[in-house]
Design a protein around this nucleic acid. Structure first.
Lengths: 192, 192
DNA sequence: CGAGGCCTTGACCGCGGTCAATGCCCGTGG
DNA sequence: CCACGGGCATTGACCGCGGTCAAGGCCTCG
């Protein structure tokens, strides 16, 4: 098995031991992609059969609000990127694109999904990914209501300092839920 | 099998056929509760082994922000109520309480969860519930960023008119993400 | 009849959005 | 090697949405 695939599989199988047979089965539906910055992976309002896992590089997910990009997620190394809507065979609400030259694993959802109903390990593997996502969304909702914009900035800075090295502040601002200008002012105020 | 249990099971098994054996297995970990208004089901910051499904009545989930209740979910008939954090064996961030005299199914998470790894139908049954929840959260995030407060009010009014008959506006306001007073003003403006 | 719960309305004000100008860094081409 | 342009961040001026505080109205229930 490709050692890169192994990383991905291990990452979402901390709650169960996968047999070699199952791992091999999953690998059949994975492949490696090398993509340049600005390559678009998933387009808004389109059905799409793949999700991705970042080996090296970075990607983002965003949608348009009145012509302005609102970023909803930045995937760095060992992060998943994909649309649950796509997994449900519905069109993605978001556009996803690579923002650094990157190496990704692509996961063929169309092929893997039916295996949930015949292979219990795969069912729980997928379940782990979805549960992870639900917990991420719960946090997102909670923090966006509970915290002031300054708090959200400071928490992100604390938990994901790498983002600030690699992602333009313009993108990060909309991720936190504020305008570019407001983020700039928060940063100025903080260092007083 | 109790016909009330059947409703619950059917509700989350539209994507697969469950054998009678599995249904019976699930039922072993369900029970019926009749509770009065104001009964607290789950307390903030506590571990808890149960999730709930509303047969008849209503319940809500909320947390405190600076001493003010922020409502995050209203469960009416055929809705789930519970904490994914609890399912992960962590303390719930939210308090959940019954707000009408209600009949609920309680689901013993501690007992059902391990079955995911031995019974594939149960794995997919639970997966359906979690996926449902993730999609709900996705919508919540999307609408809270994408829509103005007026839009959020109108959409909720359109999609869940029953809430407005059964839930105090004070609760609904924080669910939409605005103060009681602002909701009041939106309603006044709308009927001009 | 009085008290408490809930909703509404008014006055005030601060956070953060928009628009516009400026600064800074860096890559490209003359 | 320098000049120009584009991408990104910052700063200032302005203002509107929605939060807070406070008062008042209207049910319902004991």
């Amino acid at each position: 098995m490709d050692t890169l695939f192994k990383n991905f599989i291990d990452y979402f199988s901390t709650n169960q031991q996968l047999t070699e047979l199952t791992k091999a089965e999953i690998c059949k539906h994975l492949s490696i992609l090398n993509l340049d910055k600005k390559h678009v992976l998933i387009k808004e309002n389109q059905r799409h059969d793949f999700a991705y896992f970042v080996i090296k590089g970075a990607a983002r997910s965003y949608y348009l609000k009145d012509g302005v990009e609102i970023n909803t997620w930045f995937a760095l190394e060992n992060d998943m990127l994909g649309s649950l809507q796509n997994f449900q065979d519905k069109p993605s609400r978001e556009t996803m694109e690579v923002i650094e030259n990157s190496t990704l694993i692509s996961i063929n959802l169309k092929q893997i999904k039916p295996l949930m109903f015949s292979n219990i390990e795969i069912a729980n593997f997928i379940n782990a990914i979805i549960t992870d996502y639900a917990l991420f969304l719960e946090d997102k909702v909670y923090f966006s209501q509970m915290m002031s914009s300054m708090d959200r900035y400071l928490i992100l800075l604390d938990k994901e300092p790498e983002l600030f090295q690699r992602i333009p502040l313009t993108y990060i601002a909309s991720y936190i839920g504020i305008s570019r200008e407001t983020l700039s002012r928060l940063r100025a105020k903080k260092t007083l």
